[in-house]
Amino acid sequence: MSTTEPSTHPPGPTSWAEVHSSAEFRELRRRLRVFVFPMTAGFLSWYLLYVLLADYAHGFMSVKVVGNINVGLVLGLLQFVSTFAITGLYVRYADRKLDPLADKIREEVEGEAR
């Protein structure tokens, strides 16, 4: 158990600042941000578009597609589909691109203490 006050120095001899400026860590941060930020912007915009359509385009949303199922219901269900899809994409990306690098850096930082 660590103390409540976070330590200012990692367990090993290298300082946090050195790890932070290492090429590996910069690559890890780049990979995370290059996926997460555009994806967040994307799903928030798509959600906002849906809310605005439901709010101001009643006519369009009420158009029947099949039987009693209208555009509004289809777009709403597509929000579910996109949420599941983005979740799957992120998990795959994190497993392949983020975890191996993060594990490597963590072992370097923590391993030196032993």
Binding site: P6, P10, V19, H20, L28, L32, V109
Partner: peptide, 9 residues
Amino acid sequence: EVRSLTGAG
């Protein structure tokens, strides 16, 4: 940032 991204410590 190092801790949050790598889980070190």
